[in-house]
Protein backbone atom coordinates (compact mmCIF):
# COMPACT_ATOMS: atom_id res chain seq x y z
CA UNK A 1 0.00 0.00 0.00
CA UNK A 2 1.19 3.52 -0.77
CA UNK A 3 1.65 4.84 2.78
CA UNK A 4 2.05 8.48 1.70
CA UNK A 5 -1.12 8.42 -0.36
CA UNK A 6 -2.97 6.61 2.42
CA UNK A 7 -1.96 9.25 4.99
CA UNK A 8 -2.81 12.15 2.68
CA UNK A 9 -6.20 10.65 1.87
CA UNK A 10 -7.00 10.12 5.56
CA UNK A 11 -6.27 13.79 6.22
CA UNK A 12 -8.79 14.75 3.53
CA UNK A 13 -11.64 12.53 4.80
CA UNK A 14 -12.65 15.10 7.42
CA UNK A 15 -13.78 17.48 4.67
CA UNK A 16 -16.22 14.98 3.17
CA UNK A 17 -19.90 14.66 4.20
CA UNK A 18 -20.28 12.28 7.17
CA UNK A 19 -22.05 9.41 5.33
CA UNK A 20 -19.31 9.27 2.65
CA UNK A 21 -16.42 8.93 5.07
CA UNK A 22 -17.02 5.31 6.01
CA UNK A 23 -17.40 4.21 2.39
CA UNK A 24 -14.34 6.07 1.18
CA UNK A 25 -12.12 5.44 4.21
CA UNK A 26 -9.93 2.80 2.57
CA UNK A 27 -9.79 4.43 -0.82
CA UNK A 28 -6.38 5.12 -2.36
CA UNK A 29 -6.74 7.87 -4.89
CA UNK A 30 -4.88 10.67 -6.61
CA UNK A 31 -8.05 12.36 -7.68
CA UNK A 32 -11.71 12.42 -6.62
CA UNK A 33 -14.34 13.97 -8.89
CA UNK A 34 -17.68 15.01 -7.43
CA UNK A 35 -20.49 16.18 -9.70
CA UNK A 36 -23.99 17.26 -8.73
CA UNK A 37 -26.46 14.41 -9.31
CA UNK A 38 -23.83 12.01 -10.59
CA UNK A 39 -21.78 9.21 -9.02
CA UNK A 40 -18.39 9.93 -7.50
CA UNK A 41 -15.42 9.04 -9.64
CA UNK A 42 -11.90 8.46 -8.38
CA UNK A 43 -8.56 7.78 -9.99
CA UNK A 44 -6.03 5.78 -8.02
CA UNK A 45 -2.99 3.60 -8.60
CA UNK A 46 -5.27 0.86 -9.93
CA UNK A 47 -7.09 3.12 -12.40
CA UNK A 48 -10.49 4.81 -12.34
CA UNK A 49 -13.40 3.75 -10.12
CA UNK A 50 -17.03 4.87 -10.26
CA UNK A 51 -18.50 4.75 -6.75
CA UNK A 52 -22.02 3.91 -5.60
CA UNK A 53 -22.40 7.36 -4.05
CA UNK A 54 -24.36 10.04 -5.88
CA UNK A 55 -23.53 13.61 -4.90
CA UNK A 56 -26.43 15.96 -4.16
CA UNK A 57 -26.58 19.77 -4.25
CA UNK A 58 -26.44 19.72 -0.44
CA UNK A 59 -23.24 17.62 -0.59
CA UNK A 60 -21.66 20.10 -3.01
CA UNK A 61 -22.70 23.00 -0.75
CA UNK A 62 -21.20 21.22 2.26
CA UNK A 63 -17.95 20.52 0.42
CA UNK A 64 -17.58 24.10 -0.84
CA UNK A 65 -18.10 25.39 2.72
CA UNK A 66 -15.71 22.81 4.19
CA UNK A 67 -12.95 23.35 1.61
CA UNK A 68 -13.23 27.14 1.86
CA UNK A 69 -13.65 27.05 5.66
CA UNK A 70 -16.94 28.92 5.07
CA UNK A 71 -14.81 31.88 4.00
CA UNK A 72 -15.09 32.32 0.24
CA UNK A 73 -13.65 35.85 0.55
CA UNK A 74 -10.38 34.38 1.85
CA UNK A 75 -9.91 32.50 -1.44
CA UNK A 76 -11.06 35.27 -3.76
CA UNK A 77 -7.84 35.39 -5.80
CA UNK A 78 -7.54 31.61 -6.02
CA UNK A 79 -11.21 31.23 -6.99
CA UNK A 80 -10.60 33.53 -9.96
CA UNK A 81 -8.30 30.75 -11.18
CA UNK A 82 -10.96 28.15 -10.35
CA UNK A 83 -9.29 26.36 -7.45
CA UNK A 84 -8.31 26.60 -3.82
CA UNK A 85 -5.42 24.98 -1.97
CA UNK A 86 -6.04 23.00 1.21
CA UNK A 87 -3.76 22.37 4.19
CA UNK A 88 -1.32 19.74 2.96
CA UNK A 89 -1.12 21.40 -0.45
CA UNK A 90 -4.07 19.45 -1.88
CA UNK A 91 -5.85 21.17 -4.73
CA UNK A 92 -9.62 21.59 -5.13
CA UNK A 93 -10.82 22.66 -8.57
CA UNK A 94 -14.36 23.92 -9.12
CA UNK A 95 -16.75 23.84 -12.06
CA UNK A 96 -19.72 26.19 -12.15
CA UNK A 97 -20.97 29.42 -13.64
CA UNK A 98 -18.29 32.08 -14.10
CA UNK A 99 -18.87 35.58 -12.73
CA UNK A 100 -17.30 38.24 -14.93
CA UNK A 101 -16.23 41.77 -14.09
CA UNK A 102 -16.85 44.82 -16.29
CA UNK A 103 -13.73 44.00 -18.34
CA UNK A 104 -14.96 40.48 -19.02
CA UNK A 105 -12.42 38.84 -16.70
CA UNK A 106 -13.45 36.04 -14.36
CA UNK A 107 -13.92 37.36 -10.83
CA UNK A 108 -15.23 34.13 -9.33
CA UNK A 109 -17.59 31.20 -9.70
CA UNK A 110 -21.16 30.63 -8.59
CA UNK A 111 -23.62 27.73 -8.84
CA UNK A 112 -20.78 25.28 -8.30
CA UNK A 113 -21.77 21.91 -9.72
CA UNK A 114 -18.51 20.01 -9.89
CA UNK A 115 -15.47 19.55 -7.67
CA UNK A 116 -12.15 17.92 -8.52
CA UNK A 117 -10.04 17.05 -5.50
CA UNK A 118 -6.41 16.33 -6.33
CA UNK A 119 -4.28 14.76 -3.64
CA UNK A 120 -0.88 16.41 -3.33
CA UNK A 121 2.09 14.27 -2.49
CA UNK A 122 5.78 14.65 -2.89
CA UNK A 123 7.74 11.87 -4.47
CA UNK A 124 10.90 12.37 -2.46
CA UNK A 125 13.93 11.17 -4.35
CA UNK A 126 12.32 11.11 -7.79
CA UNK A 127 15.17 13.34 -9.02
CA UNK A 128 17.94 11.18 -7.54
CA UNK A 129 18.93 9.48 -10.80
CA UNK A 130 18.83 12.69 -12.80
CA UNK A 131 20.61 15.02 -10.42
CA UNK A 132 24.24 14.23 -11.40
CA UNK A 133 23.45 15.35 -14.94
CA UNK A 134 21.87 18.56 -13.71
CA UNK A 135 24.65 19.93 -11.51
CA UNK A 136 27.87 21.64 -12.60
CA UNK A 137 31.31 21.05 -11.03
CA UNK A 138 30.52 23.47 -8.19
CA UNK A 139 27.30 21.67 -7.35
CA UNK A 140 25.13 24.48 -8.73
CA UNK A 141 22.32 23.44 -11.05
CA UNK A 142 22.50 24.24 -14.75
CA UNK A 143 19.72 26.37 -16.18
CA UNK A 144 17.05 23.71 -16.62
CA UNK A 145 13.79 23.30 -18.53
CA UNK A 146 11.54 20.34 -17.73
CA UNK A 147 9.11 19.54 -20.54
CA UNK A 148 6.17 17.21 -20.17
CA UNK A 149 2.51 16.81 -21.11
CA UNK A 150 -0.14 17.46 -18.41
CA UNK A 151 0.00 14.90 -15.56
CA UNK A 152 3.47 13.94 -16.74
CA UNK A 153 5.14 14.66 -13.41
CA UNK A 154 7.09 17.80 -14.27
CA UNK A 155 6.06 19.73 -11.16
CA UNK A 156 6.78 16.74 -8.93
CA UNK A 157 10.24 16.40 -10.48
CA UNK A 158 10.92 20.14 -10.27
CA UNK A 159 9.92 20.14 -6.59
CA UNK A 160 12.34 17.33 -5.80
CA UNK A 161 15.18 18.98 -7.72
CA UNK A 162 14.51 22.23 -5.83
CA UNK A 163 14.45 20.34 -2.53
CA UNK A 164 17.73 18.57 -3.18
CA UNK A 165 19.49 21.71 -4.44
CA UNK A 166 18.23 23.61 -1.40
CA UNK A 167 19.23 20.90 1.06
CA UNK A 168 22.62 20.96 -0.67
CA UNK A 169 23.04 24.48 0.71
CA UNK A 170 21.92 26.72 -2.17
CA UNK A 171 19.53 29.61 -1.58
CA UNK A 172 16.47 28.62 -3.60
CA UNK A 173 13.47 30.81 -4.31
CA UNK A 174 10.29 29.30 -5.75
CA UNK A 175 7.90 31.61 -7.56
CA UNK A 176 4.76 29.53 -7.25
CA UNK A 177 2.02 31.30 -9.18
CA UNK A 178 -0.54 28.50 -8.84
CA UNK A 179 0.65 27.03 -5.52
CA UNK A 180 1.49 23.77 -7.28
CA UNK A 181 5.19 23.45 -6.53
CA UNK A 182 5.24 24.08 -2.77
CA UNK A 183 1.48 23.63 -2.17
CA UNK A 184 1.44 26.61 0.20
CA UNK A 185 -1.40 27.03 2.65
CA UNK A 186 -1.58 30.46 4.27
CA UNK A 187 1.87 31.22 2.88
CA UNK A 188 3.61 28.17 4.34
CA UNK A 189 4.89 25.35 2.09
CA UNK A 190 2.98 22.14 2.77
CA UNK A 191 5.30 20.01 0.67
CA UNK A 192 9.00 19.51 1.28
CA UNK A 193 10.83 22.04 -0.87
CA UNK A 194 14.10 22.07 1.04
CA UNK A 195 15.76 23.65 4.02
CA UNK A 196 16.93 26.86 2.35
CA UNK A 197 13.95 27.63 0.15
CA UNK A 198 11.79 30.76 0.12
CA UNK A 199 8.43 30.66 -1.62
CA UNK A 200 6.56 33.52 -3.26
CA UNK A 201 3.11 31.96 -3.26
CA UNK A 202 0.33 32.97 -5.64
CA UNK A 203 2.61 35.55 -7.22
CA UNK A 204 2.54 36.11 -11.01
CA UNK A 205 5.69 34.45 -12.38
CA UNK A 206 7.37 37.37 -14.12
CA UNK A 207 6.66 39.83 -11.33
CA UNK A 208 7.61 37.26 -8.71
CA UNK A 209 10.95 36.46 -10.34
CA UNK A 210 11.89 40.15 -10.33
CA UNK A 211 10.68 40.55 -6.74
CA UNK A 212 12.75 37.54 -5.70
CA UNK A 213 15.87 38.87 -7.44
CA UNK A 214 15.56 42.22 -5.68
CA UNK A 215 14.39 41.10 -2.27
CA UNK A 216 15.54 37.55 -1.59
CA UNK A 217 18.91 37.30 -3.33
CA UNK A 218 18.49 33.69 -4.49
CA UNK A 219 21.15 31.51 -6.09
CA UNK A 220 18.50 29.41 -7.80
CA UNK A 221 15.08 30.53 -9.07
CA UNK A 222 12.38 27.92 -9.61
CA UNK A 223 9.14 28.46 -11.48
CA UNK A 224 6.46 26.46 -13.24
CA UNK A 225 4.97 26.58 -16.73
CA UNK A 226 6.74 29.44 -18.45
CA UNK A 227 5.59 30.64 -21.85
CA UNK A 228 4.64 34.29 -21.85
CA UNK A 229 6.81 37.15 -23.13
CA UNK A 230 7.10 38.67 -19.67
CA UNK A 231 8.30 35.30 -18.30
CA UNK A 232 11.12 35.30 -20.85
CA UNK A 233 12.13 38.86 -19.94
CA UNK A 234 12.18 37.96 -16.23
CA UNK A 235 14.27 34.84 -16.94
CA UNK A 236 16.78 36.98 -18.88
CA UNK A 237 16.95 39.34 -15.93
CA UNK A 238 17.68 36.39 -13.63
CA UNK A 239 20.36 35.07 -15.96
CA UNK A 240 22.01 38.49 -16.08
CA UNK A 241 22.03 38.53 -12.27
CA UNK A 242 23.92 35.22 -12.24
CA UNK A 243 21.00 33.26 -10.85
CA UNK A 244 20.32 29.71 -12.03
CA UNK A 245 16.82 29.14 -13.37
CA UNK A 246 14.84 25.90 -13.13
CA UNK A 247 11.54 25.99 -15.03
CA UNK A 248 8.93 23.78 -16.66
CA UNK A 249 6.86 24.01 -19.83
CA UNK A 250 3.84 22.11 -21.15
CA UNK A 251 4.53 19.95 -24.18
CA UNK A 252 4.88 16.38 -25.38
CA UNK A 253 8.35 16.99 -26.79
CA UNK A 254 10.84 19.74 -27.53
CA UNK A 255 9.43 20.39 -31.00
CA UNK A 256 6.01 21.06 -29.54
CA UNK A 257 7.39 23.38 -26.87
CA UNK A 258 9.50 25.36 -29.30
CA UNK A 259 6.47 26.10 -31.43
CA UNK A 260 5.83 28.83 -28.90
CA UNK A 261 7.94 31.77 -30.06
CA UNK A 262 8.91 32.86 -26.55
CA UNK A 263 10.34 29.47 -25.60
CA UNK A 264 11.85 28.98 -29.05
CA UNK A 265 13.70 32.25 -28.52
CA UNK A 266 15.10 31.03 -25.17
CA UNK A 267 16.15 27.72 -26.72
CA UNK A 268 17.77 29.26 -29.76
CA UNK A 269 19.85 31.48 -27.54
CA UNK A 270 20.78 28.33 -25.59
CA UNK A 271 19.79 29.92 -22.32
CA UNK A 272 18.76 26.54 -20.94
CA UNK A 273 21.78 24.29 -20.50
CA UNK A 274 19.83 21.15 -19.61
CA UNK A 275 16.53 19.77 -20.80
CA UNK A 276 14.45 16.97 -19.29
CA UNK A 277 11.60 15.54 -21.32
CA UNK A 278 9.01 13.47 -19.48
CA UNK A 279 6.06 11.44 -20.71
CA UNK A 280 3.29 9.19 -19.42
CA UNK A 281 4.49 6.25 -21.53
CA UNK A 282 5.29 4.02 -18.55
CA UNK A 283 3.36 6.06 -15.99
CA UNK A 284 3.82 9.68 -14.86
CA UNK A 285 7.44 10.77 -14.70
CA UNK A 286 8.82 8.51 -17.45
CA UNK A 287 12.09 10.17 -18.48
CA UNK A 288 12.45 10.37 -22.26
CA UNK A 289 15.49 12.62 -22.42
CA UNK A 290 18.00 14.31 -20.12
CA UNK A 291 20.87 16.41 -21.35
CA UNK A 292 21.99 19.50 -23.18
CA UNK A 293 19.41 20.76 -25.66
CA UNK A 294 19.90 19.95 -29.31
CA UNK A 295 17.94 22.31 -31.47
CA UNK A 296 18.42 23.25 -35.05
CA UNK A 297 18.18 26.93 -35.89
Amino acid sequence: MDKTLDTEWTSLLRFLPGPWREQLRDLLCFELRIRDGRPLQSVGPGGGIVHAITATSADIKHLVAAFSQSSLYAFEEELKQGYITLPGGHRVGFAGKALLDSEGKVRGLKDISGICLRVARSVLGCADRLLPALLDQCGAPYHLLVVSPPQGGKTTLLRDIARQVSDGGKRVCIVDERSEIAGCYQGRPQLDVGMFTDVLDGCPKAQGMLMALRALSPEVLVTDEIGRTEDVLAIEEALNAGVRVLATAHGANLQEVTKRPQIRDLMERQLFQRIIILSNRAGPGTVEFVGAPLISR
Partner: peptide
Protein backbone atom coordinates in the same frame (compact mmCIF):
# COMPACT_ATOMS: atom_id res chain seq x y z
CA UNK B 1 -21.04 35.82 6.70
CA UNK B 2 -18.39 34.12 4.57
CA UNK B 3 -20.52 33.54 1.48
CA UNK B 4 -19.34 36.39 -0.75
CA UNK B 5 -16.31 38.42 -1.72
CA UNK B 6 -14.53 40.88 0.57
CA UNK B 7 -16.30 43.92 -0.82
CA UNK B 8 -19.73 42.44 -0.11
Amino acid sequence: LGVSNRED
